[in-house]
Structures are given as C-alpha cells and as structure tokens.
Write a protein that binds this DNA or RNA. Structure first.
Length: 502
RNA sequence: GGCGCGGUGGCCAAGUGGCUAAGGCAACGGAUUGCAAAUCCGUCAUGCGCGGGUUCGAAUCCCGCCCGCGCCUCCA
C-alpha cells in the first residue's frame, strides 16, 4: 500500500517510506507539565497516535517517542528568551489555590515549592488522561516518554557540538545562542526568510532583549541564571536549557538515529519550535535532514470559537469525561473518536452535538462487537485484502482520512454478518486503528447495565409496574433512569438500563 | 504586510475532471410498542463560499474576489 502523508516541509502530499525499512521512527512533541492538558493538546497527541496505528495497520514496526517538558522556561512573552515568571513558580501558586478549592486533592503535591513534585503530579495526570484515551505511547512511559530534566547532559553535549561547529556562540550577556545565519535552511519549514522574520516581528521585540544576539532571530540554547527555580551546572554557568534543544536531543538519543522518519506536533509549533529543532539537529549532526516528514495537526475550536480561558470554553480531558463541559458524562472512547474523526489538517469544531454523534458511532461499533461475540468466541485472522479493510486502509493511507474510513466501516457494520468469526476479525483490525470498540487493550469495557444496585432495582421495579400495567409508574421510573444518564430499553428479558456514552 | 491551510445539505464529513454528489447525526413518514427506546423500511443537496474562464463535460483545473483559521520569538 502506498501510504501518503502531507509534509509541512514541502507543503505537498508525498509517498511515505521509512529510512530504515525495519522500523519507522517517529517523535512527537509532548505536553508541558505545569497544568492539566486540554482537549486541544490531545487532538494533536491523538493525531500522532493515529499515524502510529495507521502505520502499524499496514504492518510497519513503529518506534514512537514523546517528550515531557518539565523544565520551567519562561512565561513572559514580552521578554525574548528568558526572564519572566517561571512556569513552575506559576504552577506552584496555582496548586496552592487548587488545593484550597479541592481541584487538586490534599496530599497530591506535598510541597508545591518543589518543581519536580509539580511536574510529576501533572505528568501522572497527563498519563492517566492519555491512557484513558487509548494513546499507545502512554503505555510505554518508562521506555519512550522522556523527561527533559533527565536529559540535561545530552543537551549540554549537543550545545557543545553546536559551539564547536560554529552554529552557536556565547553572547556578551553570557547566554549561549544559536546563530540562525550559520544555518542556511533556517526558515525552510515555516516558509520564512530571515528578512521576513525580522520585519514580521514588528515592534514586538525590544532592542534591550536583543543586546546579546548577533541576529534578532538567534535563539537561546543555555542561559546561566542561578536564581532560576530549576537549574543545572554547565560549562556556561549554572542555569537552564532553551526550550527547543530538548527535542533535538531526546529524539536522537532514544530513536538512535540522526535522521528520523516522522516528527509531529501542533501547527503552532512549526515556528519557532520545529524550525529551531531542525537547525539544532542538523547543525549538530551535519546531516541534510532531521525528520523526513513533518506533520502538524490544526487547532481545535469549541462551539465555533477559539478555546480560551477567558471565554470559559477551555476544557481539560477530565472536564469533558466528568461532564463539566457538556453536562453529561462522556465515555473516553467517545472523546477519542470525536478528537480523531475530522481531518487533522482542518480546524475541528468541538461541540456537544459532535460528541453525541460520536457516541452513536461508538455505540454501534460496540454493539456490533457484543453481537458478534455472542455468536462466536473466535476472531478469524483476516488479511488486508478483504474489501472492507481495503476500503478502510485506502482512506487511511490517503493522508489519514478517518472520515472516509468511517464511511466505509459504518454501512458494513449495519449490514448482515453471516460469518461472525470473519466479521469479528475485520472489526479487530479496524479497531486496532480507531480503538473505540473497545478502547482499551485489555478488551474489558465498563459494564452495560451498570452494576449499581439502585439502577438494577429501578429496572426491576419498572418490570413489576409494567407487569401490573401500571403505566404512569413505569413512565415515572423510566424518567428517573433517563435523568440519571441511562438509556432505557425494554427487552424480552426485561428492562435494561445502559449508561449513556455522552 | 509576509507565509500556510480551509470554505460541500440543519450539523459533522467523504468525494479533487465523467454514471443519479459516500457515510453518520438530526428531521420527517411508516412498521413495531401500553407509551417509549432500540431495530427495520422509506423521504431528505438540479447543487458543492462568490464571480468569471478552460473543457464535449468542473465541487474537482485556471484567474479574480469574499469569509474563516494558524504562524511570523508563551502556545497542541
């Protein structure tokens, strides 16, 4: 199968082939851990997961690596490359407040002044969210998710290399800067030239912040600052690394190559972050490429508006799952599908209605599975030549067209399934990519007719009322169950209440 | 100002030169039901942001315009 992906580097859709046919190496920029990740973050993380699963669907062996940015860095964008309030300090303040309000459980972060505790708290929260949403790499935390703070040494090595190769210099202010003029391809990824960057910046860059730089676009690799909350010794003074260097280093270190296959991230990372990564990596390795393919997910809107804290539509994963976003609890598979179903290069509009649509799809696929599993315990081994998998795969191979792939799957799902084992095999292959029916690897889903005693007894009471033809009472109980977030069904075996998926 | 992406029915979303424009949701009609839910059957874009052009033929190619979004040193 010819797999084609859109490559930001060339602005075209290209055929994908890994550098090393044995293994596809992909790296994705992960979260910063000063706060809970939001659904926009997860749209792009799940997009990376989808690419991985698509490649695996076609038989590739994939090594995926992601970073956790736990170095503080700066918050104040008016200041070019440093200073400002440290993000860890800001998080410490917030955690103290959240502990008072109960948003962060008492005892979760023993000492908010310890940035490592804060980072670990939000890292754990991120991993929990990521696993709930079926992100494969989140189950490989020990191996393939790397913390910036545990890789300071390789960063320092790369900075030394860059200095040795005349790509970096120590400015008169003592800061180590990357010299963008030393790298002729700087700007290629984002379609910028150094001239454009300079004029485009307008009045936003203050001269005082440029004092130590040879070119205004030069960016920081290391800043000596012994007052910084997270700091390490280095040949350039005790301080902290620049924001971009961690990805260059960790990708190379863990993936074991100077040139990798795919690098992913949100569209906002194209510039400056990924542009700088390329400059650093290629400057250090001397190779003519860092990642063959650069793939970026577009932003997510919420009910047609930009997601922002000020408009009150800023949702974390747990806000959505626990019902704070829409008023209904949402099954993780529904959120997963909602975040992956629209094309990654279009703006997706996250809406309550969209979630309910996704819930319908998830339910259909889950019900198909239980129907098939009630008929057979075997799942036939189906190869990709089956017409449904062909159609499904062709859409995925075409720059990850999930909507098209669903268009192939859903009519099949609604149709007849004379050979249950075959259909189950097909569903398993489809679900290896979508991961919604079921979501987890374990195959266990939350029970339907929830084991909650009160729900079961309400169902029993409804059966009694119906047997006595006491219709008003029956209707009253059904309303009560629906109020509690259940779909109520009357079956030959009696009344069943199923938790709504969204 | 520069660079890039996009605009398909009430909503989501395929289709990128050629039969009657996938699929889902919603809606509506019917079967079923105590009433519902679920399920099944049926209906639902002479039109693809707007205006030109190329072509035997365009949602699809070309030109112009309008609108939305992102980036241009916090950002998924």
């Amino acid at each position: 199968m010819d797999i084609r992906f859109y490559n930001t580097l060339t602005n075209t859709v290209e055929s994908f082939a890994p550098v090393d046919s044995e293994c596809v190496r992909m790296y994705g920029c992960g979260p910063t851990v000063y706060d809970f990740a939001h659904i926009g973050n997860f749209r792009s993380f799940l997009f990376a997961d989808l690419i991985r699963r698509t490649l695996e669907f076609f038989g590739h062996n994939v090594h995926q690596v992601m970073n956790i940015t736990d170095v503080g860095h700066m918050t104040d964008d008016a200041v070019a490359d440093g200073a400002g309030e440290d993000k860890m300090e800001a998080a410490a303040k917030r955690i103290r407040e959240d502990k008072k309000s109960g948003k962060v459980p008492e005892g979760a972060v023993e000492n908010p002044d310890d940035p490592y505790q804060i980072a670990q708290f939000y890292t754990d929260a991120f991993l929990e969210d990521a696993r709930q949403l079926g992100m494969k790499v989140a189950f490989e935390y020990d191996d393939n998710i790397l913390h910036a703070t545990q890789n300071i040494e390789v960063m320092q090595e790369m900075i030394s290399q860059l200095i040795d190769r005349n790509h970096a210099y120590v400015g008169p202010d003592g800061v180590v800067y990357y010299s963008v003029e030393s790298f002729s391809d700087y700007g290629k990824l984002s379609g910028n030239t150094l001239d454009q960057l300079q004029t485009g910046a307008g009045g936003r860059i203050r001269d005082s912040d440029q004092a130590g730089k040879r070119h205004p676009a030069d960016f920081m690799l290391w800043k000596a600052d012994s007052s910084h909350i997270m700091k390490w010794d280095s040949p350039w003074g005790t301080g902290y690394p620049g924001w971009h260097i961690e990805c260059s280093c960790m990708a190379r270190k863990r993936l074991g190559r100077d040139i990798i296959d795919i690098h992913t991230g949100g569209e906002d990372l194209i510039f400056p972050h990924h542009e700088c990564e390329i400059a650093q990596s290629r400057g250090a390795t001397g190779a003519d490429s860092f990642a063959q393919f650069w793939m970026h997910a577009r932003f997510l809107m919420v009910e047609g508006e930009k997601m922002s804290k000020s408009t009150g539509n800023f949702w974390t994963v747990r806000d959505v799952l626990e019902g704070r976003a829409t008023g209904n609890e949402v099954h993780p598979a529904v959120l997963r599908l909602e975040l992956i179903k629209s094309h990654y290069r279009s703006n997706m509009n996250f809406t309550k209605k969209g979630l309910q649509d996704s819930a319908g799809v998830v339910k259909r696929l889950q019900e198909l599975r239980s129907r098939l599993e009630s008929q057979t315990s075997e799942s036939a081994n189906i190869d990709a030549s089956h017409p449904i998998l062909q159609a499904f795969g062709q859409c995925l191979a075409d720059d990850v067209n999930v909507a098209g792939a669903l268009g192939a799957v859903l009519p099949w799902a609604s149709g007849d399934h004379p050979d249950a084992a075959e259909s189950l095999g097909i569903l398993d292959r489809i679900n290896s990519v979508l991961a919604v029916a079921p979501l987890g690897d374990t195959g266990t889903e939350q029970a339907d007719s929830d084991d909650q005693p009160d729900i079961i007894s309400l169902c029993a009471m409804m059966d009694e009322a119906r047997a006595a033809k006491d219709w008003p009472k029956s209707d009253e109980i059904r309303a009560q169950l629906e109020q509690a977030g259940y779909d109520v069904k009357t079956t030959p075996a009696g009344t069943i209440a199923e938790k709504k998926l969204a």
